[in-house]
Amino acid sequence: MTTLPIEERIVHMIAQLTPVRPAEIQMQHRLREDLGLDSVCSMELLSMLAEQMDLDVPIEEAMGITTVGEAVAMARRHLAARGA
C-alpha cells in the first residue's frame, strides 16, 4: 500500500514523463504550460496515479484537472471516499 505521500508520488511520475527535475516541481504548476505535458500526457499521468494508488477515477473528473495540486486533491478525495 501507499507509503510515500501522494505529493511525492506524483512528482516522481511527472519526472518520468518530462525532463523536469523533481525538486523543481511545485503544487501550483500547470501540467501543460509549466510542465509541458500535452493533454494526452496529462491523462497518462493521472492514469498512472490512479493505477499506482488503485483508485477508480472517472475520465470526466480527470479531464478537469489542470495543476499538480488539483491532481493531488483528486487522489486524496478518492482515497477518503474509499476509506469512508
Binding site: V40, M43, E44, L46, S47, M48, A50, E51, D56, V57, P58, I59, E61, A62
Partner: peptide, 11 residues
C-alpha cells in the same frame, strides 16, 4: 472500456 478502466484506460 470507460466503465471498466475509468481514467486508467488512458494508460
Amino acid at each position: 472500456l470507460r466503465d471498466r478502466f475509468g481514467v486508467r484506460l488512458m494508460a
